[in-house]
Simulated assay, not measured.
Amino acid sequence: MKFALVIFVLYAADCLAQSKNIVELAEELGATTLVSYVKAAGLESALKGNGPFTVFGPTNAAFEALPAAVKDKLTKDKDLLKKVLEFHVASGKAYSSQLSNNMMVQSLDSTLSIRVNIYQKESKQVVTVDGAEVVMVDQNATNGVIHVIDKVMFPLPSEDIPKTVAATPNLSTLLYAVAQGQLAGPLAGSGPFTLFAPNNAAFDKLPPGALSDLLSNQTALVAVLKYHVVVACDYSAGLSSGSVQTLEGKSVTIAVTADGVTVDNAKVVTADIPTSNGVIHEIDTVLLPPK
Rank of each mutant, 00 (worst) to 15 (best):
D204T: 05
D204Q: 07
L175S: 14
S190C: 04
P186G: 05
G181Q: 07
N200D: 07
A184W: 00
D213K: 10
P208D: 12
Y235I: 09
N199Q: 08
V244Y: 15
Q182W: 08
Q218E: 12
K205W: 02
S216N: 15
L171F: 01
Y227E: 01
S172P: 10
G238L: 01
F193E: 04
L211Q: 10
Y227Q: 01
A223R: 10
H228S: 10
K205V: 09
L221N: 11
S243L: 13
L183F: 14
S240C: 11
S243W: 03
A179V: 15
Y227F: 09
Q180W: 04
Q245W: 07
P207C: 00
P198A: 12
L187G: 07
G191E: 06
N200F: 02
A179I: 15
L221C: 13
V230G: 08
H228R: 11
K226Q: 15
A177T: 06
L174Y: 00
D234E: 15
D234W: 07
V230D: 02
S190I: 07
L195V: 14
L225M: 08
F193K: 01
A188W: 02
L183W: 12
T173S: 10
K226T: 05
P207R: 00
N200A: 05
Q180V: 05
Q218K: 13
L195C: 05
F203Q: 09
T219E: 15
A201V: 07
A237K: 14
H228G: 10
S172Q: 08
A179T: 14
K205A: 11
Y227C: 08
L206Y: 06
G238D: 13
L239Y: 12
G189N: 10
G191C: 05
D204H: 10
A179E: 13
V244R: 13
G189H: 06
L239P: 15
T194G: 04
Q218W: 04
S172N: 11
V224H: 04
A201D: 07
S172V: 08
G238M: 10
A210S: 13
